[in-house]
Design a protein around this nucleic acid. Structure first.
Lengths: 170, 170
DNA sequence: ACAATGTTGTTCAGTGTTCAACTACTAGCG
DNA sequence: CGCTAGTAGTTGAACACTGAACAACATTGT
């Protein structure tokens, strides 16, 4: 608590640019999806994860983890998505507490229609302003930050050439 | 509309890492501030901008622009901050429509107390996991993205050595 | 079998955010 | 001057999110 490691001028500038850029991106993505597809970004994410899952269904807690969202938020979201007919809840036979969320055919269709506009927006906002090299660096940086904050969400670190083990591990 | 420029596998990975990392950062910052200082990140930003302004006051629209927020959101926020006694509204003599938001002494104090914990969190979440070089690159990247999305918020581009002009510009 | 502990998912109340409508004023132009 | 158009700021209703509390079930250990 004693001495705060304040940000110097350059760090401040970096932080504010990052804050501004991230906000701009996510707000615009949210607006775009809400306008063109009738769902906010977080709901879109939920549909994406479901669409990628085995049998287009997932346990609630797993869906929450994959979407990087809280169980409470997901529960609300699925209720809403159920009203729209895009997701259905199913009881879980293996675990009496559990519940599956399933992507309906309508939900899959909604996702298919929403995807192009969303991807285009991601490109316009994030990738187009950057060089290929910058994109690569951004990937590395993001993964490192993610690994520090949410190790459970980060992909495994790059398989770099490592010093050979002895091979006599016991 | 015809052909969507889909993301390839690497772009996907980059996008998801960026999405995850940003979300993790902002959610944690919000939690931290709400817990330790009783205000969400967006309100903190408002106080910061006011504290840096001439006379610790700003016109609402200018405060909204600087905080990267909408007028509506700011209006609600200032109402809330006013109830907390951290901000006060003042009529604007120059413009009958206008209003100033002023940071109160209490608000300044609240900001002073909130700052260390917030800065520490920013460091832990964003800067500590990165090398100095990565931080520098992140700065450049963020500024470019910000300039593309919100030119009004971006700092002027770096003063790089440019081809000398003729000096006979007319 | 039983108690203690942990997990899953939902709900509630409180709060924040969005969009569109609205009032009040200013500015530009004939 | 009077008209039109634009800007500043606020409001309300619908919606989303949070943390905490809760019920239901699973797991562990004895």
């Amino acid at each position: 608590m004693a001495d705060t490691r304040w940000l110097d001028a350059e760090e401040q500038a970096t932080w504010r640019a990052f804050l501004g850029a991230s906000r701009a991106i996510f707000e615009e993505l949210d607006r775009q999806l809400l306008r063109d597809a009738g769902m906010p970004l977080t709901y879109y994410e939920v549909l994406v994860r479901l669409s990628e899952a085995e049998g287009r269904q997932l346990r609630m807690h797993e869906l929450a983890r994959l979407s990087g969202t809280s169980r409470s938020r997901l529960s609300h979201a699925v209720t809403r998505l159920e009203e729209q007919g895009w997701v259905a809840r199913r009881d879980c036979p293996e675990d009496g507490r559990g519940a599956y969320a399933t992507l309906t055919e309508d939900g899959f269709e909604a996702l298919r229609e929403a995807a192009p506009g969303h991807v285009e927006a991601v490109r316009t906002l994030l990738f187009d302003p950057l060089t290929a090299e910058q994109v690569a660096t951004l990937g590395t940086i993001s993964e490192q930050v993610l690994r520090a904050a949410r190790p459970d969400l980060a992909p495994p670190p790059p398989a770099r050439p490592r010093p050979p083990t002895t091979g006599t591990t016991g």
